[in-house]
Simulated assay, not measured.
Amino acid sequence: MARKYSEKAQEKVGEVMHEFKRGKLKSGSGKKVTNPKQAIAIGLSEARKKGSKVAPRAKPER
Rank of each mutant, 00 (worst) to 15 (best):
M1S: 10
A2W: 02
K4W: 07
Y5W: 07
S6Y: 10
S6P: 08
E7I: 02
E7C: 00
A9T: 12
A9S: 13
E11A: 13
E11P: 00
K12A: 08
K12E: 14
K12C: 06
V13A: 06
V13K: 11
G14W: 00
G14N: 13
E15T: 07
E15G: 06
V16F: 03
V16G: 09
V16W: 04
H18F: 10
H18D: 12
E19Q: 13
F20Y: 14
F20S: 04
R22S: 10
G23I: 04
G23Q: 05
G23S: 06
L25C: 03
K26D: 03
S27V: 01
S27L: 00
G28K: 11
G28I: 03
S29Y: 03
S29H: 05
S29T: 13
K32Y: 09
V33L: 05
T34G: 03
N35I: 08
P36S: 10
P36C: 07
K37A: 14
K37T: 12
K37C: 00
Q38H: 07
A39R: 01
I40Y: 04
A41Y: 09
A41V: 00
I42N: 02
G43C: 12
E46Y: 04
A47V: 03
A47R: 02
A47F: 05
R48C: 09
K49R: 15
K50M: 15
G51I: 07
V54W: 05
V54D: 09
A55W: 12
A55G: 12
E61G: 13
R62Y: 12
R62K: 13
R62C: 01
